[in-house]
Amino acid sequence: MKLKLSDILITIVIALVFGIIYKLWGPVYSLFKPFGLHIGDVIYGMWFIAGTVAMLLLRKPGVALLAETAAASGEFLVGSEYGLSVLLYGVVQGLGTELMFALFGYKRYTAFVASLGGIAAAVGSLVMDAAYGYVMDLALWNLLLLVGARLIGGFLIAGLLAYFLVQALDRTGVTSLVRPASDEDYKALDR
């Protein structure tokens, strides 16, 4: 299933919207992170949401990676305070989400798989943090707090919130524009 122009365009439009949110999220996160206690990392999950939302909407291979990369580019182009690092973080996080949907053969788009996608993106961001912020050199309890908060954030925001958002979008009927015809659609024709 190759991506058509409309798939790409819709993915990038959604991604840019999230890109703006990503940019606005930077100062919020800085404020939520007082004195290096990583409780605030629960809201870090917002930075993974573009991948899962786009994938749940369009349901085609490659969409999560494209969306997360595009969202990061959008964030970068409007002048993110994290600068260039967001581009690489975006790619790695997108890969994480993509991998989870690929693991289920791009056939299951449930809240469970979406949550796994969010968590995988969180793992991706932690891998980047290990190279960028020497997080492995934190005291153990602090590192565990960081990992825990990050994963919970990925699960709650990029997983459940994304799923809830797409379900709400489903009810508007707009998803019929973007999704490929499913087996059920073909069966409906036979009836």
């Binding site: 058509k4 409309s6 365009l9 819709i10 959604i14 709400a168 508007t172 524009l177 973007v178």
Partner: peptide
């Protein structure tokens, strides 16, 4: 929801 659904429709039309 309204912002995203409208922009999905718009993006589809443009494509």
């Amino acid at each position: 929801v309204p912002l995203l659904s409208q922009s999905i429709r718009r993006a589809h039309r443009i494509a």
